[in-house]
């Protein structure tokens, strides 16, 4: 079974986000990128399926700071094929529509049975990448997947719904699945394995086509969350804050 995992790097929230002077995008000078958290689950699920059924796993990523590390660490985990799209970078003015088109072209060439992708990312301003990609490559899409069983070329998935409901559904392959959680927590890969991969594995660098952001919304302005008039910000250390919350709940008659 051949599986492709297109991944996305997103701003790392350990750094404070600043808005660019233009007011419509993030200031990239302080930005630092990290692999989208659920993409790690998509990758893990791909490795689990590969281990169970054989085949190959490929990862596709746009270029950007830290992308090589992400790719080599996936190789150290067991991914066979590392594809890096060069010429464009995460952080460039690319929305998910554009990324989906770029990834879609590669996916079509690879002809996988399964495309596993993180179901969402915190910077999805124009919808999540999975359904867009599925549309461009003409495959069915199921999102919020937390379990995948493959038998005889057929695929049964567990899809999570709000409120704890879980549906079991059959999906015709090839398909794009938006993974919410892998069946096992993403594995740890020792640094020495990553370093080994850096020495022995090569990146398949492919020039990215011209990006097409068409179909996405236009951003007029971006701003940080504002304190609402009715909101009260409680200052102080943990103990003080906790005490004030208890007082407030008391005043409101909730406790």
């Amino acid at each position: 079974m051949n599986i492709v995992v297109p991944v996305k790097l997103v701003p790392d929230l350990v750094e404070d986000l600043e808005i660019d002077e233009s007011g419509i995008t993030l200031d990239t000078s302080w930005l630092r990128l990290i692999l989208n958290e659920v993409d790690e689950h998509a990758l893990e699920q791909a490795l689990l399926l590969k281990e169970a059924h054989g085949g190959t796993a490929s990862v596709i990523s746009l270029d950007g700071e830290g992308v090589d590390d992400v790719l080599f660490s996936s190789a150290a985990k067991g991914v066979d094929h590392l594809i890096k799209l060069t010429g464009l970078e995460f952080g460039d003015d690319l929305n998910n529509h554009a990324v989906a088109r770029l990834y879609g072209a590669i996916v079509e060439r690879l002809e996988p049975e399964l495309v596993l992708i993180g179901v969402q990312a915190h910077n999805d301003l124009d919808g999540s990448l999975g359904p867009l990609l599925a549309e461009y490559v003409g495959m069915p899409y199921v999102g919020y997947v937390s379990g995948i069983t493959v038998t005889d070329g057929k695929c049964r998935v567990l899809k999570e719904y709000p409120g704890g409901l879980i549906a079991e559904m059959d999906v015709v392959l090839p398909a794009v699945l938006g993974v919410q959680a892998a069946e096992a927590p993403p594995r740890y890969v020792a640094i020495s394995r990553i370093r080994q991969a850096m020495k022995t594995v090569s990146l398949d660098e492919q020039a990215a086509a011209d990006p097409d952001s068409g179909g996405g919304p236009t951003i007029d302005s971006m701003f940080k969350p504002e304190t609402g008039e009715r909101a009260t910000m409680i200052a102080g250390d943990e103990e003080e804050v906790a005490a004030k919350i208890v007082d407030l709940l008391g005043e409101l008659g909730k406790v």
């Binding site: 927590p185 594995r187 740890y188 890969v189 020792a190 020495s192 394995r193």
Partner: peptide, 16 residues
Amino acid sequence: LVMEGRMDGMLQEAMA
């Protein structure tokens, strides 16, 4: 164990 990735979630997070 580390080479095999056999460690608990908290330790894994700390290492990451």
